[in-house]
Nucleic acid binder design. Structure first.
Lengths: 101, 101
DNA sequence: TTATTTTATAATATTTGTGTAATTTGATTT
DNA sequence: AAATCAAATTACACAAATATTATAAAATAA
C-alpha cells in the first residue's frame, strides 16, 4: 500500500480536511460535520493522512485533535521545485528561441 | 473518474514520467525504456496524464512527442500556497507563543 | 457503577486503478 | 500497393481504495 504525501493529497476530501486543519486543529467529529459522508469515512481519511504522516494527533481529555505536519507538506514543495524552475526559465527559453530565429 | 492534477501526480511512475518530460519531450517508446513496466502500461499512464491535461502531445511524422503543460502544474503550486503561508508564519507563531508564556 | 460520548477497528460491497495481451488504427517507407 | 512501425484501443485479470454498517474500546459524566 502506497503511503506518501502525494497519495495523501490525491483525494479531494483529504485536501479539504488539510485545508480545514491549517486554520485550526480539529477532532474527527468536528471535521465530519463539514462533509456529507459519514464520520467513519472521514475517520478513514484521517487514518490515511496519519499513515502518510501528513497529520498528527494530540489528545486532550477524551477528544483527539488532529493537526497538519508542515514538514511533510514541504516534501511536495520540494518536488514542485523542478517545475518552478521550468516556468521561471520560460522567459529565458523565449529569449533563446527569438535569438535562434 | 477523477481526472485532476493531484490524481496525475499521485502515482510514482507518473511523477517519474513528468520529471523526464521536463528535460525534453519524448515518445511513449522512449519513455518506456526508462521503466520496468511495458510500453502499454506506460502508455496508459500517459493517457491519464493527458486526460489530466498535465501533458500534451505534438505529432512529428509518425511519432508523437509528449511534453509537460507547465500551466497545469501551476495548479498544484497554487494549492500549496496555503501551506507555504503556514510554515512561513511559524516564526510569528513562535513569537506569539513566547509572548503568551 | 452505569450511561453516554468519542474514536477506532473489522467486515463487507462497490468502485477504481494497474498491468498484460491482443487487436486496430494511422502514418511512413519501400 | 504492400510491408512496416508507432501508438491507441479493447478486453481481461488482479490489486487497491473507498464508503458503509456494525462492533469494540476508551474516556467522561451522571
Amino acid at each position: 500500500m502506497r503511503r506518501d504525501v502525494f497519495q495523501a493529497i490525491a483525494d479531494p476530501t483529504r485536501r479539504a480536511i488539510l485545508t480545514l486543519l491549517i486554520v485550526q486543529a480539529m477532532t474527527p467529529n468536528a471535521l465530519a460535520e463539514h462533509f456529507d459522508s459519514t464520520r467513519q469515512a472521514v475517520s478513514k481519511h484521517i487514518k490515511i493522512l496519519t499513515e502518510c504522516e501528513v497529520v498528527a494527533q494530540k489528545q486532550s481529555g477524551r477528544e483527539i485533535y488532529y493537526h497538519v505536519v508542515p514538514e511533510k507538506m514541504k516534501e511536495i514543495d520540494i518536488w514542485m521545485e523542478q517545475f518552478r524552475k521550468m516556468w521561471e526559465s520560460r522567459f529565458d527559453q523565449l529569449d533563446n528561441l527569438l535569438e535562434e530565429l
